[in-house]
């Protein structure tokens, strides 16, 4: 099934998304990968606020190439999500509701997704040039010194992704590995 969804996502909308569905996302999303997650975890540990209000938001695990003159952003595809697994359950418990990346997640992340009624999307790895066309605005909002790993606020239009882990805990990758998917 195909869905056109707009951020911030609500739990009602997420409840309609099922593993294997395709989505087109429009609105604001935030980038954060390894180093930014580490800093956010440190901030929380020190009792400091996160650099943006993550409630109801989507984090895109992505570090772009520099934008060429006249471009909004460079190549901008997903990175492997499992490297963020250590930090993710805490963020989900604090209100993060969606993630875009690629690859498998840990059981702890899966549990936190179900507990919080959240969703994990995959974007196509290796399609960074194509995906950059769905990004119409980009600005660094925190941790600028991290370069490509800084937190960016992106404005996306019809950003294509696939529901890999839905709020019920169904895991598309697992279904493919077990040969039980209806995808093909």
């Amino acid at each position: 099934m195909e869905h056109e969804i707009t951020t911030p996502l609500t739990k009602d909308v997420i409840a309609t998304l099922h593993a294997g569905d395709t989505v087109r996302i429009t609105g604001t999303i935030y980038t954060a990968r390894d180093a930014a997650h580490k800093r956010m975890a440190e901030a929380l540990q020190e009792g400091k606020p996160l650099p943006f209000d993550i409630r109801g938001q989507i984090i895109y695990y992505m570090g772009p190439t520099p934008a060429k003159p006249g471009h909004v952003i460079g190549s901008a595809g997903p990175t492997t999500a499992s490297r963020m697994d250590k930090y993710t359950p805490q963020l989900l418990d604090l209100g993060l509701i969606g993630m875009i990346g690629k690859g498998k997640r840990s059981q702890a992340v899966k549990d936190a997704i179900v507990r919080n009624g959240a969703v994990y999307f995959a974007a196509i790895g290796g399609a960074g040039a194509l995906l950059s066309h769905s990004i119409v605005g980009a600005k660094v909002i925190a941790y600028e010194d991290l370069g490509t790993e800084a937190i960016r606020e992106l404005t996306v239009k019809d950003f294509p992704a696939i529901v890999v882990m839905d709020a019920e805990g169904t895991d598309l990758y697992k279904k493919v590995a077990e040969g039980t998917t209806s995808c093909d």
Partner: peptide, 11 residues
């Protein structure tokens, strides 16, 4: 990537 001369992948 070829037409715009941008990287095929961000990595």
């Amino acid at each position: 990537a070829g037409k715009e001369q941008i990287p095929i992948c961000q990595d």
